[in-house]
Design a protein around this nucleic acid. Structure first.
Lengths: 115, 115, 115, 115
DNA sequence: GTGGTCTAGACCACC
DNA sequence: GTGGTCTAGACCACG
């Protein structure tokens, strides 16, 4: 399920965070659903458990997951905000890119046509 | 002219590469124009010559500049392609982002309105 | 394994690149095989790690190796193309040389005899 | 007439030497023929006279040219040996290349077919 | 003065 | 321990 790019400058643990967030936003991972244990995820991906642990800690810090000790790690109950945040973040990126293209000499209309 | 962010995850040499590319795309740096020597750029930016050298090497590899040993480093003659490539690259990113937002449940119309 | 000629006009890092490429082409270094760490290779050859790093970076750029940060550097999976490229490159050089000799007044038959 | 490649690792003065030698071998420059003065060649090529001087000195050392002070620089009388040397040099390169290709797994017959 | 290479050594994030 | 980056400083050929 998780896809790692070892060439990327983005650290492995951050790639995990982003992809879990993405699955949550897409509804593939549902509220209250349990996600694999640190150890399972680590062996699945063939990476160090410490790396997975770091990702899970960050996910919890962001409010995407909740960890209940002795029970496991679960997707948070309210995932709506996560979706909205992701959308806003992507829109912002698009706005920046459009502005950058405008600086290269194209008008908004031309850009719209090319999309 | 070059602006460095030492906090960024992007290495310094790559920041130089990107900014020179950008100035070329914007037409601020013109074809055949000479850019500062490795040493000058290094003292200007308060960084090590090796770091500048690394940036210049990468710029040449990308075809943005041409280096003539003992003469200096110059902007390449065919600057058009660089601009076009940069635009195409950004459009591609926008297309990807739009698709990702669609997967999060918005239609193309809704996205257009929000931009 | 690597043999350096300090008198040569060819820089050390490029000698490393060429010899690794050669070992790959000869099948001595096999796909997916790990090559020595930057530090190990450097101490083995009695040179600076930066020089080895430069060679490894170039090898990756050429698609001969794949580097995974914190894991090491490995020979690429598709080694066949590298061999074919090397052969084609050498054939091309021979064709050029033959043409040059022809211009000096010898026929193809004469050249064939002298080889 | 002389074609310079500023990207090449071969120094400019050496490129001049090689090309003059080549023109002599090809019979384009004939025995006893006068070649341009250092100053003329330098302005023609847009390079430093010192560089041309260095090339001419090397040509004389190799016996390709003879300099008569106050008169100028002339192609040597016996150019036969130069041609023969060039041919032998190129044949040697071809033999080496063939051997290298053999090491990559092809037989002499296969190489002959591909040429 | 210019680029090209190399050494020596350091710090960092990541695993 | 591994690669990635950077600093500091040196030497070289070339022009």
């Amino acid at each position: 399920m998780i896809n790692l790019d070892y060439q990327s400058r983005t650290p492995i643990y951050e790639q995990i965070v982003e992809q879990v967030e993405r699955y949550v936003a897409l509804g593939i991972l549902k509220p209250e659903e349990q996600i694999p244990s640190v150890r399972d995820m680590a062996t699945d991906l063939g990476i160090n458990p410490n790396t997975v642990k770091k990702a899970y800690t960050e996910l919890e810090r962001r409010g995407v997951t909740v960890t209940i000790s002795t029970k496991g790690t679960f997707i948070a109950s309210n995932t709506k905000k996560i979706v909205e945040d992701k959308i806003e973040e992507k829109l912002k990126k698009i706005r920046n890119l459009i502005e950058e293209i405008e600086q290269l000499g194209l008008t908004k209309e031309e850009i719209k046509k090319m999309l």
